[in-house]
Design a protein around this nucleic acid. Sequence first.
DNA 1: CCAAAAGTGTTGGCTCTACACCCATGA
DNA 2: TCATGGGTGTAGAGCCAACACTTTTGG
Lengths: 241, 241
Amino acid sequence: MNAEAPPPPRSADETAGLAAARSPRAARPKVAVDTVVFAVEGGRLKTYLVQLRHGAARGRWAFAGGLVRIGEMLDEAARRELFASTGIRQAYLEQLFTFGDPSRDPRAHVVSVAYMALIADARTAAAPGGKYQDGRWFEVSALPALAYDHLQMAEYALGRLKAKLEYTNIACNLLPETFTFAELEALYAMILKRPIDRRNFRRRILSMGILRRLPATRRGAHRPAALYSFARRAPQVVEML
Amino acid sequence: MNAEAPPPPRSADETAGLAAARSPRAARPKVAVDTVVFAVEGGRLKTYLVQLRHGAARGRWAFAGGLVRIGEMLDEAARRELFASTGIRQAYLEQLFTFGDPSRDPRAHVVSVAYMALIADARTAAAPGGKYQDGRWFEVSALPALAYDHLQMAEYALGRLKAKLEYTNIACNLLPETFTFAELEALYAMILKRPIDRRNFRRRILSMGILRRLPATRRGAHRPAALYSFARRAPQVVEML
DNA sequence: CCAAAAGTGTTGGCTCTACACCCATGA
DNA sequence: TCATGGGTGTAGAGCCAACACTTTTGG
């Protein structure tokens, strides 16, 4: 997040921050969190952006975020802002990197701890309330111009997601409770942006033992597909040797 | 770092922070950096700790750190505090993780961005000036009780270092300009805490093409060893496929 | 019976590991 | 000449990538 000067500042301290930006010796940098949310919708990887209502970057899009409050854990702050801005309550959350360039927000020195969030169902996100003009999902491959250094955050988050697909069960956070192998494969192929050999992929994933085969099948237009779920939803590093 | 209440507070704001800890609504969390420095000395992996002079954790050991100033980049702050506390000027620096538990420092809510620093020569660190009582190198495998959550930082840093030894040229930051293969091998074996097959190791490293063989040799008590240096000192991810 | 997606095995190449002996030098 | 650390090669196992056909269902 960044100092977006919420129209009614929550406390005297918040306006003090702006004054401080003008007389730098008088204040400390502020701490914010920003969260890059990913979800898959319509076979595309998407991320939720909010449109800023105030400030120099007004009208620009950004990731949901906000200042960390005294006494608050960083991930609590990320969850609070995520819920306030998108309505998302449950999400896998992971700290990415902390961006601290004092010029990243032209109005104040705001150090932002970037998080990545993953959700299984993009429809749990609703348009935000008062803080932002608008909010909606964008395809990751077609983002609008982003405010602040949020493009860097987007790239960092995508890189982390790709990397962790290869050696963890992180994909479980982007899929519904049950899914078919074809869906899992499509997820990998889409995010990694490369074709995947179905037979090798199936063998590799099954050998990790992170999936549970369900007795049910999904019936569609053609041959029914076996349903699977992840054996553990807890984060897990997988040996691929 | 943490709010160590430097005896003469640098500004009115700094004392305000302590007051704020008592009336949480009035202030924002502060931002600090803490740096875990690693160096190899006497065939051991060591890290530099400073002994706190003030505060509840007085007398405890901690990593060098301090508050980030307005207008300052995070890594600049880390370098500044590192130099002030250890005299180290040049170091490889890498951001690790941001620790934000509001209770990590009992006196104030301080969000700390942890860094890892690597240096080639432990002797470039000198005992610190006024901020700390003492400062010296400790073997990583025999750390004293650490203040705050600095044990977590130590573990995180060591984990990162081990991981990156395997797929980057990060080791170059812990070695002098030139070195023998035996020295490189000893470094890996020591940090990874496992024996390394000399022949396989040599083949693997050479196949990465990150080393340059120098014409010179090092003469010692026995057969002279060929000298090497890293072809690139810039961070580099190595394909080990 | 046709279209479409699901499901299944094998092979060759390559990488990794395990392992033991000779070499060059100083003392 | 001996002690010490430096330097080298090979063979077997296991992993990975490449590759195409059969099965099951709905229409």
